[in-house]
């Protein structure tokens, strides 16, 4: 048995080396932009303008990071990205939480409390996953105006919740479709009500799909630029819009090192979410596809 195993390893040795080499090159290729960003964000500006973008810093400085965070010129104010970072947090956390919870409840109803035309309703909800953002800009602006939410963080939360429900419903519906209905029936006979069944029986088993949904919503909402630029302006703008303003600020010299640092700062939260919850992401994506 063991001899068979060694043999199969030996025959594949060269192929395997090629595979690893190829994968390594691809990994380096993908890491290159990030390398350039990190390297240039810790150099003084003179090193960037006068030299090689790929070179390691001769003088190490975290000055650009500090500037990007708290003193750089964003638009007209020298505030750095800090206030906008908190804007984004204030927008992302409620929007993700609300759209995930609503998606979970939708999925629960669409699979365990079936009603007439429920598949048609679900189909209509899926439309929101495919409608391009640009189409809804003007109607959405009207509605935000009517509700008195235009230009505020609350307005952005509403927009992202509405847009997020389609995806979160899709995730949870497909996940709960594989959840045994007999459990719901048993709980019904045991006397559990609609919400009791939801949070005592379904929710405790929804870990993986919740992670998937949260990661998806978090990255989408955090990275959104169009809605942020359209519906929030000035001091209410989210991080992505502020980053754009930072880079576009036309006064004085272009501080590439500060721009690089700002861009990394803007990408950091999503990166963190992936690193922390990435394992569950893959597991959760697989969970719906294979039964048992």
């Amino acid at each position: 048995m063991s001899s068979v195993q060694t043999q199969s390893v030996q025959t594949g040795r060269i192929t395997r080396k090629f595979i690893y080499l190829f994968l390594l090159l691809m990994a380096l290729f993908y890491l290159l932009p990030f390398f350039i960003m990190v390297v240039n964000s810790v150099k003084p500006l003179s090193e960037i303008t006068g030299g090689n973008m790929m070179a390691l810093p001769e003088v190490f400085t975290i000055e650009p990071w500090l500037a990007a965070w708290s003193t750089a010129q964003v638009g007209v104010e020298p505030t750095g990205l800090r206030p906008y970072f908190w804007n984004s947090i204030k927008m992302v956390v409620p929007a993700v939480a609300i759209s995930t919870v609503l998606g979970a409840i939708n999925g629960y109803i669409l699979t365990k409390w079936r009603f007439k035309y429920d598949t048609i309703l679900f189909g209509l909800m899926l439309f929101s996953c495919f409608i391009p953002f640009q189409i809804v800009l003007i109607p959405m602006a009207r509605i935000l105006g009517i509700l008195g939410l235009s230009g505020s963080t609350y307005g952005l939360i509403l927009v992202h919740v509405v847009y997020g429900i389609g995806f979160s419903t899709l995730y949870f519906r497909n996940y709960y479709a594989a959840f045994p209905t007999e459990l719901v029936r048993a709980a019904q006979i045991d006397g559990a009500g609609f919400f009791q069944i939801f949070y005592r029986i379904l929710m405790p088993s929804s870990g993986p799909i919740t992670v998937v949904c949260v990661i998806w919503q978090f990255t989408n909402i955090w990275n959104d630029f169009l809605f942020g630029a359209s519906f929030a302006s000035g001091s209410g703008a989210p991080m992505t819009v502020a980053l754009n303003n930072l880079v576009q600020s036309s006064t004085g010299v272009k501080e590439y090192n500060v721009h690089f640092a700002g861009a990394i700062l803007a990408a950091l939260p999503t990166l963190l979410v992936y690193i922390v919850a990435g394992r569950y992401f893959v597991r959760g994506l697989m969970a719906g596809s294979v039964k048992g």
Binding site: P180, E182, L183, R185, A186, I189, G191, A192, R200, S205
Partner: peptide, 17 residues
């Protein structure tokens, strides 16, 4: 169902995991 004073044993046992 919960007010009928019945109890049911399911094919899949339906134990809360």
């Amino acid at each position: 169902p919960s007010n009928r004073n019945i109890a049911m044993v399911f094919q899949s046992y339906a134990l809360y995991p």
